[in-house]
Design a protein around this nucleic acid. Structure first.
Lengths: 193, 193
DNA sequence: GCCTCAAGATACGTGAATGTTTCTTAGGGC
DNA sequence: GCCCTAAGAAACATTCACGTATCTTGAGGC
């Protein structure tokens, strides 16, 4: 280990380890989340980890929990439906891709074992109602930019579903043109129909 | 090994191994798909596997390919666009759900390890071109039921993407009304726009 | 019925990760 | 400034899978 580095203690050390664990998790997945790899990444040693998190699941849970306090996705309010929609997808693309990837990689085994699924988890975590897409449409209706007619949940949440689908398929952030394509070629024509 | 068992050769042995590999994959995921486990399940030995599939990826691809070849999804040709679309989704719902669930649950580690993703795997398996959705639209255009205008890949494959999304989210077959909703409320209005 | 080749068993070295123990040394409290 | 605790280094036995090499034995072709 680098002799220059000061010896860390308490919360400073703990946070550094969990940050390292998050990096390893995003980079190599659950299978790569070994005590060895995390200790190396955090520039510490395995016994330090074992003293705090006796099992790998403890370490995983602590890592995810620490990042649960992460940034919420902002819903822009520009006064323009298209700008709101694309802006929201852009924010989600920047902030949510890692989390979606993580969940898809990490929790599938849990889903398999418990017989639950994404939807179950989202409901258990307290589903945000209304969803961001529904908020954006409601604002457009209030401005008179869209007719005030009933719309199905599928139509309302279509852009985010397509966004999530593409992220799950590629496990990467989406290029900007995919976001505008979803809004311009799919969602807006259906909303304005 | 059971002395009663006859010694298998050629395709019979190969199919028995790949069937065993499929079972292991479904049961324990990619991480559990070891030469040891597959050889044990198939009542053979690791060298027999190494002679045919030098790497674990070769074994994985062969296993998935065999399963998929055994489970083709029919594309109905009724002369009606809506009936074709809903019929195809219904066939996919009956036949592909297990496959999609498997991939999502079991292969995420593989994606992480190899830096690949769902799309990469689909290409490696030989992506059918044109896709079923594209075939269905082409037939409708040929009949004169749809105008012969250029359409984006996203629009053309929209129903299957939405279907796949819902399967990934619920890890269950979709109810019939979801299939008709995708076709009637989303796809057909955009195609006929 | 004999011959050939591959199936199948067995063993060996390697490498990675586990869980634990021992020892030193640095930081912070007093 | 001293002391105590915990950080960090190092080593240990164990486990599991890998990849290969060697040997036998059975199945199918002729």
């Amino acid at each position: 280990m680098n002799p220059q580095r000061t010896r860390r203690r308490g919360p400073a050390l703990e946070n550094a380890i969990l940050d390292a664990a998050w990096d390893v998790l995003v980079e190599h997945g659950y299978h790569g989340l070994t005590y060895e790899a995390v200790a190396a990444r955090a520039h510490t040693s395995r016994p330090v980890l074992y003293r705090r998190w006796p099992t790998r699941d403890d370490l995983l849970l602590a890592t995810i929990t620490r990042y649960r306090a992460a940034q919420p996705v902002e819903i822009p309010d520009t006064g323009d439906l298209r700008a709101d929609a694309i802006g929201f997808l852009r924010n989600a693309d920047a902030g949510l891709t890692g989390m979606i990837t993580l969940i898809s990689v990490q929790l599938m085994d849990y889903f398999r074992d418990t017989g639950t699924n994404f939807t179950t988890l989202r409901d258990a975590l307290g589903s945000p109602t209304p969803t961001p897409c529904e908020i954006i449409v409601a604002r457009a209706v209030a401005r008179g930019d869209l007719p005030d007619v009933p719309r199905s949940r599928r139509l309302l949440n279509l852009p985010f579903d397509l966004f999530r689908h593409d992220v799950l398929m590629t496990l990467r952030p989406l290029p900007a043109h995919s976001l505008t394509e979803i809004v311009d070629e799919i969602w807006l024509p259906l909303l304005r129909r």
